[in-house]
Design a protein around this nucleic acid. Structure first.
Lengths: 232, 232
DNA sequence: ACTGATTTTATTGGATACATTATGAAAGAT
DNA sequence: ATCTTTCATAATGTATCCAATAAAATCAGT
């Protein structure tokens, strides 16, 4: 069969495209748990040869999204709510460690103002007169910035590495989380509270209180509800 | 070139053999940091085709031992002592989380006796009249069991996943750690202290004191010197 | 009808040929 | 002498072919 180019986008290698597509399908749930996938299946489905399909499957396995069954292909793994909670716990200790490290070692002025700015932005968005859904989205975006900035600044490749995994989790298992307009205001209040925690965390870091920075961040990371965060 | 079978051992797939060999060479230092390795190089060096070489390189990259440089092959990554310390910190929080979880959720009797037995074994070995080097080796083995048992019992695949990485680190960067006969007794004393910590940790877990179990384990994990542990 | 062996089939493991790309070197022009 | 352009080389990306393997299905014998 002559090579038909993948109709995806961008100029990435074929492996990466396959990984991206499969990961997305797994995460959004169109590839359900326990589904069997084989090299040939993937290669036909996405119109690539077996080689990139194979690379992609290996990559996804090392990401923990699929599992290689002895002689009989791969199967999609599932995550129940208990496991998701576990993931959040791990994420909490990692972010806590990062925040503690920053407090211990101190941060430069640029980062301090950046973080401060993010907090201000979040407050501005949350108290604005936009549609609640938009306010939530605005929060999500800047919240991600906040956490990302701290993780990056800690400059600990092991934290980062471990963290990677937690960024790719199929969340559908929880019953997809739709924005509930009824509870909009309640949700906004929660987000305001979360931003207060941001303030406290930044404060602890600036005061070089590593203990407090760590435990605040850990607590904070465990609270953020699923749909306000990580998902890329 | 006709396929010459790899002269390694066991009945693993070729990928796995290549991964194992390369990982070992990187960890023991015969493949030094910044060394460039390419698919062809690996395939010629280990007498396999490019396909398994390629799979292996991808696997090692996802393990964080090598890095893909844009168009020009892979290079071996290095870890300085600061980064090793970081690795230990991450390991500490992960093991701490595991210990805390066990304390919170309780452990069954079998595990309790197992852990108790390990502690007794270590005490027995350390106070025996064997050669100091042998006593250290004995400690290493059972110590690994102790930590492994706790990590396994926590049944948190995310902890386990993150932990995997930390088990494969090239340690030569520190200047290889040889057993120093002069300081043997001093070292044995340290190990006795470490085992006392094991006792305290187990005790905290049995008393369901999650806080204490966590912080004890975290502290403990940071203390164990490099050559008494992880290395597989 | 049931059990064991054999054949078939689905699927991965591995090798190689071909395509593509990026870097480095060399040559020519200014 | 330096800059630019072109060409060569080395590396990866991709497809496909062949081999090995394990599960499933079929067939034969009791």
């Amino acid at each position: 069969m002559p090579q038909t180019p993948v109709a995806t986008d961008e100029n990435a290698t074929s492996d990466q495209k396959v990984v991206t597509i499969l990961r997305q399908r797994i995460m959004e749930g169109s590839l359900k748990a326990d589904t069997k996938i084989s090299e040939v299946l993937v290669s036909e489905m996405l119109d690539v040869s077996r080689t990139p399909a194979r690379m992609a499957l290996q990559a996804l396995e090392s990401e923990g999204l699929i599992r290689k069954r002895d002689g009989r292909g791969y199967t999609v793994l599932s995550f129940n709510s208990h496991e998701l909670a576990q993931a959040y716990e791990v994420r909490g200790v990692l972010e806590g460690l990062a925040a503690g490290t920053l407090a211990r070692e101190g941060i430069d002025e640029a980062l301090a103002t950046d973080l401060g700015q993010i907090i201000e932005d979040i407050d501005a968005v949350l108290t604005s007169d936009q549609d609640p859904a938009e306010r939530v989205t605005g929060f999500q975006s800047r919240n991600r910035d906040f956490h990302q900035a701290i993780m990056t600044a800690a400059e600990n490749r092991f934290i980062g590495h471990a963290y990677q995994r937690l960024a790719h989790l199929p969340l559908v298992s929880l019953g997809s989380v739709v924005f509930n307009a009824d509870k909009a205001e309640e949700e906004i209040t929660r987000l305001k509270f979360a931003n207060m925690q941001h303030r406290l965390i930044l404060d602890a870091i600036l005061r070089r209180d590593a203990m407090r920075a760590e435990s605040l961040m850990r607590e904070h990371a465990n609270q953020i509800p699923i749909y306000t965060d990580l998902l890329v």
